[in-house]
Amino acid sequence: MKKPSGPLHQDGDSQAMTTAVNQLVELKAKLRRPSPYQLKVGCWNFWPDKETIQRDSQCSAPERGLEAFIGKLREDNLLA
C-alpha cells in the first residue's frame, strides 16, 4: 500500500530539495513526496539533502546526487 504523498513543494524546503523537485517535474517524473525529506519515483527513493539514493528494500546505492538519481530513473524507463 502506498503512503500518502505530501505536496511537492513545502515551506522551509532546502535549495537541494527545491532543485530536485523542479528538475524531476520538468522531466515529467511520476514523483511523490512521502516525507518532507524524501522523493520517490517508482521503486527509487532520493533524499536530496544527503544525496542518498535507495531502491525499495535494498541498501543505499553507491552513487549519490541528483544526476545519479535521474540516471537510475532513465535506466528503469521511469521518465516520460
Rank of each mutant, 00 (worst) to 15 (best):
60 S>Q: 06
31 L>M: 10
65 G>K: 09
18 T>R: 15
67 E>V: 03
16 A>S: 15
45 N>G: 07
31 L>P: 13
37 Y>K: 14
37 Y>P: 02
49 D>Q: 15
80 A>D: 13
35 S>Y: 11
23 Q>C: 11
20 A>Q: 06
57 S>I: 00
72 K>L: 00
13 D>T: 04
15 Q>V: 08
41 V>M: 11
12 G>S: 09
62 P>N: 02
28 K>F: 04
46 F>V: 00
67 E>H: 12
25 V>W: 13
49 D>E: 15
20 A>D: 10
77 N>A: 08
24 L>V: 03
30 K>E: 11
40 K>Y: 01
59 C>I: 00
57 S>C: 05
55 R>M: 08
70 I>V: 15
24 L>K: 02
68 A>K: 10
28 K>N: 13
28 K>S: 13
22 N>I: 00
45 N>H: 09
38 Q>P: 06
63 E>A: 08
41 V>T: 12
80 A>L: 09
61 A>F: 05
48 P>W: 02
31 L>K: 10
72 K>R: 15
21 V>Y: 05
74 R>S: 08
31 L>I: 04
29 A>Q: 06
13 D>G: 04
18 T>F: 09
43 C>W: 05
16 A>Q: 15
56 D>K: 07
16 A>P: 13
19 T>K: 14
14 S>V: 07
79 L>I: 01
78 L>G: 04
46 F>S: 01
17 M>H: 07
51 E>F: 04
62 P>K: 05
47 W>A: 01
12 G>M: 11
63 E>V: 00
48 P>R: 03
53 I>C: 06
66 L>S: 04
18 T>L: 14
34 P>T: 07
69 F>Q: 00
45 N>L: 06
34 P>V: 02
49 D>I: 07
34 P>M: 07
16 A>K: 15
15 Q>C: 07
79 L>N: 03
12 G>A: 11
61 A>R: 08
54 Q>D: 01
51 E>A: 13
21 V>H: 12
54 Q>T: 00
29 A>P: 13
31 L>R: 07
32 R>H: 11
26 E>A: 14
29 A>S: 12
48 P>M: 06
66 L>H: 08
58 Q>K: 14
69 F>N: 00
49 D>T: 14
43 C>K: 14
71 G>D: 09
33 R>T: 02
70 I>T: 09
20 A>I: 03
49 D>M: 09
41 V>C: 12
21 V>S: 10
30 K>W: 03
69 F>P: 01
60 S>C: 09
67 E>D: 15
74 R>D: 05
70 I>S: 08
41 V>W: 00
23 Q>M: 14
74 R>Y: 01
55 R>L: 07
57 S>D: 13
53 I>F: 04
26 E>V: 03
18 T>C: 12
70 I>G: 12
42 G>A: 07
